[in-house]
Amino acid sequence: MPHAATVMLAGATVAERIRAAVPDAVREVAPQWVVLEPSAAFEAMAAVRDDELLDGKYLVELCSVDQITRIDVVYHIASLAQNHLFELKVPADHEHPEVPSVTPLWVGATLQEREVYDLMGVRFPGHPELTRLFLWDSFPGHPLRKDFLALPGGQKAGLSQFPKQIVGETGGEFRPRRPGTGE
């Protein structure tokens, strides 16, 4: 029977269900969410979706958070039948983030993954058409990243102060210039 109000499942219960299906998928358990190993992420997601207890058939939302040292791809998955919601995180390397695409499991993820790729730069192998969603292809860099156009002193750049960029020197991928670090 569905709960009267949506219940936020505790990390422990979700982690225990995932370990039952895919032993080494859980990297860390927090009270509200579970952090998965990137390598076993896809199997864990498939297990979560088809598990009768968790019944994660409805992918509520998919986004990414730039934690300076790593980029977390956050999945909120819910079961409409049992009216409960839980959160999974898949960490990825900061310079070359790569997380397996979940489009084979949920069709709703296609556009959201393209948005994450467009704004955060996370690659999703297995995505049918991984191209930029909002910006045009030759847009340098990914705006939502913390290091995008960071100015000296780490102060976040307002969008109007753009440093000069010499065309052709850095090729397609525009690397923001960090004065003082020489590159």
């Binding site: 045009w136 292809d137 030759s138 847009f139 340098p140 000069k164 960029q165 065309v167 397609g172």
Partner: peptide, 13 residues
């Protein structure tokens, strides 16, 4: 829409 198509970039700020 491959990247080589060129187009907008940060010329002149």
């Amino acid at each position: 829409r491959s990247a080589s198509e060129g187009g907008g970039d940060l010329r002149g700020g």
